[in-house]
Each structure stands twice: as structure tokens, then as C-alpha cells.
């Protein structure tokens, strides 16, 4: 059995670090894309994005309940996936409504970015209140369907290893949906006329106007995309963990950290940043004791938990990485915008 120690250690790491980090990273990446696109096109830091995600998720939950009542379910897949497109439509419409009633005014006035940021705080309050008013502030799980793709017990039985590997179906769903979302988004931005126009507008607003690009169209499409990204990220996170409005507000910090670390305003940066933050958060809060017990000879085995930081401080990790990046390379890994 000695020979399997390394394998056991790797499975342990996969089960508790790699698999969760990939799925959390995908969720963060989609969320950070929403932040970074608002920043690139509309040029402000959107404090309401966490609550926008929360609104989108709530809408998806309501649709899920509706479908469940109507007897429509996703079978092995969660019903929320059927609800997702409907939730995206509602959330995108909400974004357009907010833009028309709130942000447009300041855009016409060419207000400073920090004014937009404060305005987004007002929007945050209202979205937050709306979500709490409709669905309440409590924790909710809305997952149905087949829970596991691979169960630890089955894995142990079939491989004969001591360590089990669990892969939740939500983790696979997260990764697949996230990949599809990113591919669609990057196809749109790189290959379509409107996507290129969005990038052009983000890059050089005056020249975009001179080229006949209609700013209102660009802004409209931006908000639709942001609504969709927010809803997708929120639903994936909620399916994988659970839905609680306050948690979504707290996601603001890792989300912003992901966007800034990658280079704010740069979509690829947001994706990379999402995974950087997720992996760091999980790797630095994992207790490696058991991992080292497998790998090290008996007399070297660690006595402590071998944990860098307690899980209570996972938010601190986003922050620390953010600070390190700000000191070493303020524009982020991929050069983002500087104002």
C-alpha cells in the first residue's frame, strides 16, 4: 500500500482544493467579467453588481419554483437551468430599466466616475431591499436533480484508494456553463460587428462617435450582457453552495479583486483573475496536515494543521492578493485601463 501514498495525497488535494477551486473560480470569473465590462464600457466601479447577481438568482429561484409547481423539472439536471434563460431576460430588462432611470442622466452630464460609484451604491440599496422584500434574507437551497457525479464511497470502492474523490454535479455544471458563457462572450466581443463596436467604444469613445457607433446601442447591449453574466454567476454560485443575499454582497470583494488582479477592463484578465483568487483562497485556507502525512516519513509528520490561514479569513486573501498586485503591478496581470 505504501506506493499509493502519493496517489492518495493527490486525490486528497484534488478533492479539497482543485475541484472546488475550479468551480468557485469559474463562478468568480463570470462575476468579475460583469464588473470588468461595466468598467470598460461605462467607466465606473459598479458596487451594485453583487446585489444584481443576487436579484438574478432570486428570479431564477422564483422561476424554478414555478416550474416545479407546474411539474416541469430538469430530471437529473437542476430545474434552475431551465429557469436560467427566463431569469436572464428579467434581469437584463431590470438593468436596462435602471440604466434608463438612473445612470443615463449622469452619463449625459458626463459625471465623474466616483459619482457613478456613489450612484451605484444607491442602486445597491434598492436591489438589496427588493431581494430581501421578495424572498427574504435567509439562506435558501434551490438545487434539485442528481446531486453527485462521483461519490467518495464509490470512488474508493472502485479504485481501492483510501482517499475518496467527490465531484458534485453542480461543479461540472458550473464549469460547462461557464465555458459556454465565456466562449459566447469572447466570440461576441472578437467576431461580431457589435462586439467590436463595444470594444472600440471602450477604447476610444470620441473616435467611436466619429465612426458613427451609436453610444446608446453600445450601452444597452452592455447592460444586457452584464445582466446575463450576473445572473449566470449568481445561479451557478447559488446552485453550488446556497443563496443568501448578504453572501452575494460579500462576494463584491473577491469579485473586484479578481477584476483588478487580472487588469480591470480586460475580459481575459477577469477570467484569469477569477481563478487566481479562487485558487489562492482555497489553497491558503486548506489544512495540509493529512496531505503531508501521506507524503512525509513518519518522524517528519506535522503536528499542527498546516494551515496558512483559517477559513474565517478567506476574504482577507482576496484583499492581500489585491494589495500585492497594487504594489507590484497596479495595472493588473493583463494590462487593464488606467484612469
Amino acid at each position: 500500500m505504501e506506493n499509493f501514498d502519493i496517489l492518495n495525497a493527490l486525490i486528497l488535494l484534488a478533492n479539497f482544493v482543485i475541484v472546488p477551486a475550479i468551480s468557485y473560480g469559474s463562478q468568480l470569473a463570470i462575476a468579475a467579467l460583469g464588473i470588468t465590462i461595466v468598467y470598460a464600457v461605462l467607466r465606473f466601479s459598479n458596487f451594485a453588481h453583487g446585489d444584481l447577481m443576487s436579484f438574478g438568482t432570486m428570479t431564477a429561484i422564483l422561476f424554478t419554483w414555478l416550474f416545479q409547481n407546474l411539474g416541469i423539472t430538469g430530471g437529473v439536471l437542476p430545474t434552475a437551468l431551465i429557469a436560467l434563460p427566463f431569469a436572464i431576460i428579467v434581469t437584463a430588462l431590470l438593468c436596462l430599466l435602471i440604466d434608463k432611470s438612473v445612470y443615463r442622466f449622469y452619463r449625459k452630464q458626463k459625471s465623474h466616475a466616483v459619482v457613478f460609484m456613489i450612484v451605484s451604491v444607491g442602486v445597491m440599496f434598492i436591489l438589496n431591499a427588493t431581494v430581501r422584500f421578495i424572498i427574504g434574507p435567509n439562506d435558501r437551497t434551490f438545487f434539485d436533480g442528481e446531486k453527485f457525479l462521483i461519490r467518495a464511497l464509490d470512488f474508493k470502492a472502485s479504485t481501492g484508494l483510501e482517499e475518496g474523490l467527490t465531484i458534485k454535479s453542480t461543479q461540472l455544471i458550473t464549469v460547462i456553463v461557464a465555458i459556454i458563457t465565456m466562449l459566447l462572450l469572447f466570440y461576441f466581443l472578437q467576431k461580431t460587428k457589435m462586439g467590436k463596436a463595444m470594444r472600440a467604444y471602450s477604447n476610444n469613445e470620441d473616435l467611436a462617435l466619429l465612426s458613427g457607433i451609436n453610444p446608446d446601442r453600445v450601452v444597452m447591449i452592455t447592460w444586457i450582457i452584464v445582466g446575463a453574466l450576473g445572473t449566470i454567476a449568481g445561479v451557478l454560485y447559488g446552485l453550488d453552495k446556497s443563496f443568501k443575499p448578504f453572501t452575494y454582497f460579500q462576494l463584491l470583494l473577491p469579485m473586484f479583486a479578481a477584476a483588478i488582479v487580472g487588469g480591470i477592463g480586460n475580459p481575459i484578465g477577469a477570467v484569469v483573475g477569477g481563478y487566481i483568487i479562487a485558487f489562492s483562497e482555497i489553497m491558503l485556507t486548506y489544512a495540509y496536515k493529512k496531505f503531508f502525512i501521506y507524503l512525509l516519513p513518519e518522524h517528519l509528520e506535522p503536528s499542527g494543521l498546516m494551515q496558512f490561514l483559517s477559513t474565517d479569513y478567506k476574504f482577507a486573501i482576496s484583499f492581500i492578493i489585491l494589495v500585492i498586485v497594487l504594489i507590484i503591478r497596479p495595472t493588473g496581470v493583463f494590462r487593464g485601463k488606467t484612469i
Partner: peptide
Amino acid sequence: LRSDYLAIATLGISEI
């Protein structure tokens, strides 16, 4: 640094 970085950093430090 940029004005929004202060906002994000202070948001972070207060959570910590």
C-alpha cells in the same frame, strides 16, 4: 493609485 482602488481597498479592510 486610481480613486476606485481606495474604495475597494477600504471595503476589503473593513471586512477583514
